[in-house]
């Protein structure tokens, strides 16, 4: 299996505070990798460095090497806009644009130059179907996306990410603000698109990690404690800390 993203000794600091102390992780093509760990362990920070969303936070320094398809994403020659087209992201809070459902999903495509109406219609429909929201919005594609419930909004956001067909999708606790039914639908989506995309998901929900991921990385206080096949790690963790966390002794 080819590695899509490789990270080598990644250290991230906010000002003087070092949040990550050298993380080495590789992500393989068409696999779901879960990042778990207690709040403040640095998993979101790490995730956001993979498509350079940390650039938005002032005083952040990233050292070490993060490579996407073997290109250093922090090198000066990297086009960040282009990078983010290939590495999409779904956030914790649903954040649809204040536009219609259709426009939300078509926005990225239109900007990358797709003007053919039929092609747009088709991509919008496919993406909304992939995100398991089509049945609920097909009759109101022209309605403002913000008028839907949080769970529906999150799935519209999911469709928006899928529409531009990235290679990697980063998810930062995508279901922690959702009701169980919407969460289940997002998970369903993940399972169904799993063979077309490389997915890296930060989650607080260990059952979720166990259900959906191929591999799991456990982070603690800015260090990578353990990284293994999900099944192996949940049944037979190598480190005591992992075992304690998975058994709910802290967290």
């Amino acid at each position: 299996m080819t590695n899509v993203i490789t990270t080598d000794n990644v250290r991230i600091s906010y000002g003087d505070h070092e949040a990550l102390h050298g993380i080495n992780l590789n992500f393989q093509e068409n696999q779901i990798t879960a990042l778990i760990g207690p709040s403040g362990c640095g998993k979101s920070t790490y995730l956001r460095s993979l498509n350079r969303m940390n650039d938005l936070i002032p005083n952040t320094t990233v050292t070490g090497e993060i490579r996407f398809r073997n290109n250093d994403i922090y090198s000066n020659s990297t086009d960040v806009v282009d990078l983010r087209k290939k590495i999409g992201m779904l956030f914790q809070q649903p954040n649809p644009f204040p536009l219609s459902v259709y426009e939300n999903v078509a926005y990225g495509l239109k900007l990358s130059g797709v003007v053919n109406k039929r092609m747009l219609d088709e991509r919008v429909e496919i993406s909304l179907k992939q995100a398991a929201i089509w049945d609920e919005v097909k009759d109101s594609l022209n309605k403002n996306a913000l008028s839907f419930s949080g769970g529906q909004q999150q799935r519209i956001c999911m469709a928006r990410v899928l529409a531009v067909q990235p290679e990697v999708i980063l998810m930062d606790e995508p279901t922690s603000a959702l009701d169980p039914i919407s969460s289940a639908k997002i998970e369903e989506t993940l399972m169904s698109i799993h063979d077309q995309f490389t997915i890296i998901i930060v989650t607080h929900n260990m059952q979720q990690a166990a259900r959906i991921s191929d591999k799991t990385a456990f982070l603690l206080n800015g260090d990578l404690v353990e990284f293994d096949q999900t099944e192996k790690m949940f049944i037979n963790p190598k480190m005591d800390a992992t075992s304690d966390y998975l058994n709910g002794k802290f967290g």
Partner: peptide, 27 residues
């Protein structure tokens, strides 16, 4: 305008200017 909107735009591969003019400004 919520920062989430900017993040949404940028993470979708919109340039900074396009995010501002197409999303933040209308909002």
């Amino acid at each position: 305008v919520s920062n989430l909107q900017r993040e949404a735009g940028l993470s979708l591969g919109l340039s900074n200017w396009k995010t501002i003019s197409g999303i933040v400004l209308p909002a």
